[in-house]
Design a protein around this nucleic acid. Structure first.
Length: 455
RNA sequence: GUGAUUGUAGCUCAGUUGGUUAGAGCGCCUGAUUGUGGUUCAGGAGGUCGAGGGUUCGAGACCCUUCAUUCACCCCA
């Protein structure tokens, strides 16, 4: 039988892993620089921990784990007979693969609230799983790199996270557009429209504005049951095309009677106020009223990051995030506001690959290969190997005393820049022949000078 | 979940209105070259044409089913 792996999952060979680690290392270093502490949580969570946090669509995409043992024995007989999958699931699955890192983090905070010093800043780099149908930039197993602060409502945290975006993408050499909005503004809009309970439908529709246009957005809202008068009063906002400041002014007028809406605007203005003194290197920060995000738990600022580089054709977001005022509340800990961002490492990889932004030295591993001549020369080869390794030069000795052509071919295929030839001549004079593989030149070097030369 | 797309050698792909033994480039292996890779030359291995069924004297090609792929929608990192 031909082996295969589940759709939407991938193997990562050495070439890819070296580049992936470059991304992880870059992000991790920035997280640590900003004072975030590491955390890991289990791949699986109790299904009840995850359900209901991501919206209706999200819940469907959670990978459920079948109970072990004779799970049908305990299954709901009616649900089974009626083929009611949804109801049946509750009885046969108690665990699920984590869907993101934010909800497990909230669960962790609640469970360890007495040990944690707040505000708590943590970073977490782990895979998550989603039962989506794969396509470009969309995988069923992918890594998220999260940084969150919990236990503080200060908008300085939002500012810091924007700076963190700038730090990471500056290190990766990628220009990006950071879009920011505030859920309170969206709530305010829904409120003045008299459709407060349809906020999700309204925001999801507004989110598509630049993709499908005003008319289709209106049509979608109507089809979701939003009243015609409400849709019409939204019209000026949808069709508005002015500067961001002007748009905020318009919003202010529209949302005057909405306390929550005005709060959202004030928050956006405060954050932009902080950034005035800053010069971002790679980030272009934009207020984007149509940014919605489907995850249920966001209550304040929401972020999305898109590539701003002509060398990449990537249009979907590569990072996301936002503030959640009460994610821990469901688990019994109230008044614990948090805000966080997530880097989509796999999408960032695709972008860097497409734009040719991986540095060349990110792909080097072994620096020197020692040719194995076998016999009496082997002991000398081993001595050279230890000398170089003791001096932290990445060195290999070819394990078999096979034909030189084969050993040279190995160095070539592995992109090893130097090869050492040390046979009886070199051994007797305590020298080595050092060959530079890129230009083909070679020279004799005293063994005791070799390590310094290669460092 | 909806709609398309494509499955032929390790990889990228040709393969005419159905016709004998299914091809190319790259890669791989061997040799030219017993202490020299990447270049060159000579030779070689490698295929259940995604799987199952059907039509036909005859199927890689046509039909059905199925699985997988890629892409768009949806949603999202």
């Amino acid at each position: 039988m031909k082996p295969s792996i589940p759709r939407g999952t991938r193997d990562f060979g050495p070439d890819e892993m070296v580049k992936r680690n470059y991304i992880f290392d870059t992000i991790r270093a920035s997280f640590r620089k900003y004072g975030y502490l590491p955390l890991e949580t289990p791949s699986m969570e109790n299904l009840s921990t995850l359900m209901g946090k991501y919206g209706e669509e999200g819940d469907k995409l959670i990978f459920k784990i079948l109970n072990s043992g004779d799970f049908l024995e305990k299954a709901d007989a009616d649900a089974l007979a009626n083929k009611d999958s949804k109801k049946l699931t509750a009885g046969i699955s108690e665990k699920a693969l984590r869907y993101d890192l934010t909800v497990p983090f909230a669960r962790f905070v609640v469970m360890h609230q007495n040990e944690i010093t707040f505000p708590f800043k943590r970073y977490q780099i782990q895979p998550v799983w989603r039962a989506d149908k794969p396509q470009k930039g969309r995988y069923r197993e992918f890594y998220q790199c999260d940084a969150d602060v919990i236990g503080t409502t200060s908008l300085l945290n939002e500012l810091e996270l924007i700076e963190l975006f700038d730090e990471v993408f500056n290190n990766l050499g990628l220009r990006v557009k950071v879009q920011i909005n505030n859920r309170k503004i969206l709530s305010g809009i829904a409120e003045i429209l008299g459709e407060a309970d349809r906020i999700i439908d309204i925001t999801v529709a507004i989110d598509k504005l630049d993709k499908i246009g005003v008319d289709k957005v209106k049509a979608e809202m109507l089809s979701k049951g939003v009243s015609e008068s409400a849709v019409n009063s939204l019209q000026p906002l949808l069709e508005f095309s002015g500067s961001h400041d002007q748009k905020l002014e318009l919003l202010k007028k529209m949302l005057q009677s909405s306390e929550i809406g005005m709060k959202g605007i004030a928050e956006i203005e405060e954050i932009f106020g902080y950034t005035k003194a800053l010069a971002f290197k790679k980030v272009n920060l934009e207020f984007e009223m149509t940014l919605a995000r489907g995850l249920n738990y966001y209550t304040g600022a929401i972020f999305e990051v898109k590539v701003d580089d002509t060398r990449s054709s990537f249009t979907s977001s590569i990072c996301g995030g936002g503030r959640y005022d009460d994610l821990t509340g469901i688990f019994g800990l109230n008044g614990m506001s948090g805000v966080g961002i997530s880097f989509g490492a796999d999408r960032i990889y695709d972008v860097l690959e497409e734009a040719g932004l991986f540095p060349a030295d990110a792909t080097l591993s072994t620096k020197v290969l020692i040719v194995n001549f076998g016999g009496e020369d082997l002991a000398y080869g081993l001595e050279i190997l230890r000398t170089l390794r003791n001096n932290s030069v990445y060195t290999e000795l070819y394990p078999d005393a096979v034909k030189m052509k084969k050993q040279m071919g190995y160095a070539d295929a592995r992109n090893i820049p130097f090869v050492i030839l040390a046979g009886s001549d070199e051994r007797n004079s305590r020298e080595v022949t050092l060959k530079n593989m890129s230009d083909g030149t070679q020279q004799k070097i005293k063994l005791d000078q070799l390590a310094d030369l290669l460092k």
